[in-house]
Design a protein around this nucleic acid. Structure first.
Lengths: 160, 160
DNA sequence: TATTGTTATACTCTATAACTATA
DNA sequence: TATAGTTATAGAGTATAACAATA
């Protein structure tokens, strides 16, 4: 059963704090593992920044991308999210059910929908952007400004 | 329906290659997003390195940690994996069903099991370590040696 | 009382396949 | 025939709660 406030996300696996006295063996030599740990800390920062917002990283990503690419099709959104069409469908259903986005027919292609944020979606996105940026800056504050620039450059080399 | 070879993992969401001509808006300024992209690339490297092995990052992590901490309890393993006891149970069931690990009674505590790798588990782990290390090095080869040292240091500052 | 392991259950996410309507 | 969207279904992963045995 859920124990959080209504419409809140269930707690993330999130904090995998190191267990004192435990050996992590080879894992500490694997970049993939270090990336995973850092990314979970980033998830946790996102979760804190969007607490009681019923938002997830995937939903936030969809909001940002639709906002930045009005008229986008669901297939294109699915490609951007790295998910199948059916997954994009569910995200768009979720956004539409909350009045944040809408599907409009496209004159040039009767098969596809164009996706657009509603005014409430735009407003909601502005608020979420503020929260997420602030949480992300707080998360990255463990690094110096120079380290942040370096990290961003190296991550982009690895992840595109 | 599954389309891979028997016992293979289903394909990861994995490659979220950038969609040409799409704007990613604010996402490119968020460390959490860059971390997520890089980590997915790392997952993909892990998947390639362990193809047709029916292994997952979580199972591999469990193997390494049990191997490095013989006699570990399931609760401690769950804490290391950042999962609930029931989740640790399922991983251990999986390892035990394949003869890779075993539960032994602990004289000092009748409630808990001690976890140990079997000889097959040790052997399998040695092979997997070779594969994972090689895949990880290939993945990180996109960086210079100096960049790799720097990245590891910065990730550890973020993820513990 | 608290903790360990266990079981049962529910929920989320995602992939797959089949279907329709358009191209 | 190919593609966009839709629907239904299945599987993996994980959290929660309740329980028995032990501390």
């Amino acid at each position: 059963m859920r124990n959080g406030p209504p419409n809140a996300r269930s707690p993330r696996p999130g904090s995998i704090a190191r267990v004192a006295g435990l050996s992590y063996g080879d894992l500490d030599g694997i970049f993939g593992y270090a990336l995973r740990r850092a990314q979970l800390a980033g998830f946790e920062a996102f979760r804190r920044a969007t607490a009681r917002q019923d938002i997830t990283p995937a939903r936030y990503t969809a909001l940002v991308i639709v906002g930045a690419n009005p008229g986008l099709t669901q297939s294109a959104l699915g490609a951007a999210l790295g998910t199948a069409r059916s997954g994009a469908m569910m995200v768009v259903d979720w956004l539409e059910a909350r009045g944040l986005a809408e599907r409009r027919t496209l004159p040039q292609d009767g098969r596809a929908w164009g996706l657009y944020l509603t005014p409430q979606g735009e407003s909601r996105l502005r608020d979420l952007k503020r929260r997420v940026r602030a949480g992300d800056m707080q998360f990255a504050a463990r690094l110096t400004p120079g380290e942040r620039v370096t990290l961003k450059r190296l991550l982009d080399k690895l992840g595109g």
